[in-house]
Simulated scan of single mutants.
Amino acid sequence: MLRIHFTGEDLARIRIATGPDPMWEMLMSLHRLRRRDSGMLLGPWLRESLPRVPATTRLLTALAPPVGYSADFLTPAVGGGLAAHLEALRSTPLHQVTRDLREFGIQNPKRRLPAWHRELVAGEPAGMGRVADAAQAYVDAVLDPFWERIWVQVSRDRTRRSAVLAEGGWDAVLSTLHPSAHWEYPVLRLAFPVDQDLHLGGRGLLLQPSFFCRYAPTTFADPALPPVLVHPIEHEPHWATPEVGPADRGALAALIGPTRAVLLFALADGIATTGQLARRAGTTAPNASRHVAALREAALVSSHRHRNATLHTVTKLGRALLEGRNVCLCA
């Protein structure tokens, strides 16, 4: 069982991640590949991905067995996209590498690391560089073809939990994170492979929805790392099937312009800040803000302030346009 101990300060510092974490999805998907336990839900991904798995993935699976402890350094606690995570992996401090490999030996006594792990223990940059290169190759080959759909599913889960938060506060969110969740302040109890206590101590907690996390939630073994709880999401049954309708981006782009079409699609499955929309559209925040203002004027998007950010969501009219229903855009 995992027991997460909160203080009042921690409750005020809970956050829900804005999107999937590429390294946690890498780790969780490796488990799915090794166990072949994708079932019908993840079957389409497994069938397409198995032939594409790079040979260098063996460097990752050596550090991430299908059952048992995986090295914490494989999932750096940093923000940003894949490039930032890979740079953090390459720059893992030697003391963390040593600690994680020692923990690996304790928790996986029947598993022997290959000879190249000595490069990691010695702090040779080439050793961690090869691990990071293997992670890059795996994500590019196995996750990237599905990344947009992965993002949509995680975004939907975040939207659902945000609605639960608005209705019932953090008590409702923590109580419904997982079927095993038992929340009674100040402790959240969850099913876990080992007996572990995590004392937040005012650091707060990041709730990280994960597309490939299927069973129990997970977290770092090292309690000194930034607290995160990776938990399964509720998938849409037909997530792998491309949607039809003028979810044809070309048709929508011809109607409202390419950048505005990308922004509207990015909002279709959740709430986003201007900065998040800018990153998804590959543009600057001022440019995204200008286009969102135009979408708002057309009643396709609504916006409201929350603390220091402006949150945007698609309106009923905007959703109807995305779904290809007949709509009137006249004044």
Results as ranks from 00 to 15, higher is better:
Thr98Asp: 11
Ile106Asp: 03
Val67Phe: 11
Gly105Arg: 15
Gly80Gln: 01
Ala115Pro: 00
Phe104Glu: 06
Glu119Pro: 00
Ala88Gly: 11
Tyr69Glu: 04
Phe104Ala: 11
Phe104Pro: 04
Leu89Asn: 08
Val121Ile: 14
Gly123Ser: 06
Glu87Leu: 09
Arg102Phe: 11
Asp72Glu: 07
Leu89Ile: 06
Asp72Pro: 02
Val67Ala: 13
Ala88Gln: 07
His117Cys: 04
Lys110Gly: 06
Pro65Trp: 09
Pro114Arg: 05
Gln107Glu: 13
Gly68Glu: 04
Gln96Cys: 07
Ile106Glu: 12
Arg112Trp: 00
His117Leu: 00
Glu124Ala: 07
Gly80Ser: 08
Leu101Cys: 08
Arg102Thr: 14
Thr98Gly: 11
Asp72Asn: 14
Arg118Asn: 03
Arg90Gly: 06
Gly79Tyr: 01
Gly105Ala: 15
Val121Lys: 05
Thr92Phe: 01
Asp72Leu: 02
Pro76Asp: 09
Phe104Ile: 04
Gln96Lys: 13
Pro109Trp: 04
Gly68Tyr: 07
Pro109Thr: 03
Leu120Arg: 10
Thr98Val: 13
Asn108Asp: 05
Pro109Arg: 12
Pro66Trp: 06
Arg118Tyr: 07
Asn108Glu: 03
Arg112Tyr: 00
Gly81Met: 01
Gly105Thr: 08
Thr98Cys: 10
Asn108Met: 08
Arg102Tyr: 10
Pro125Arg: 07
Asp100Glu: 09
Lys110Met: 10
Ile106Ala: 14
Ala71Arg: 10
Val97Thr: 15
Ala88Ile: 06
Thr75Arg: 14
His85Thr: 06
Phe73Trp: 10
Glu103Gln: 15
Tyr69Phe: 15
Ala84Arg: 13
Arg111Gly: 02
Tyr69Lys: 10
Thr98Met: 11
Ala88Arg: 04
His85Arg: 15
Pro109Met: 07
Leu113Thr: 04
Leu101Pro: 01
Thr98Tyr: 05
Gly79His: 04
Gly123Asn: 04
Leu94Lys: 15
Ala122Arg: 13
Leu86Ile: 10
Ile106Val: 15
Gly79Ile: 02
Leu89Met: 13
Arg90Ile: 05
Thr92Ser: 13
Trp116Arg: 09
Leu101His: 11
Leu74Gly: 11
Val97Trp: 08
Pro125His: 00
Val67Ser: 12
Ser91Met: 10
Glu87Met: 06
Glu124Thr: 04
His117Met: 00
Leu101Trp: 06
Glu87Trp: 02
Leu94Pro: 03
Ala84Thr: 10
Lys110Val: 12
Ala77Lys: 05
Ile106His: 12
Gly105Ile: 00
Ala71Leu: 11
Glu119Asn: 04
Val78Pro: 00
Pro65Ile: 09
Leu86Trp: 03
Pro76Arg: 07
Pro76Trp: 01
Ala77Leu: 02
Val67Leu: 12
Ala83Val: 07
Ser70Lys: 09
Pro93Cys: 08
Arg90Thr: 05
His95Phe: 14
His95Pro: 03
Thr98His: 13
Arg112Ala: 12
Leu113Asn: 06
Leu113Phe: 01
Glu119Met: 10
Lys110Ile: 08
Glu103Phe: 04
Arg90Asn: 07
His117Gln: 04
Ala84Ser: 13
Val67Glu: 15
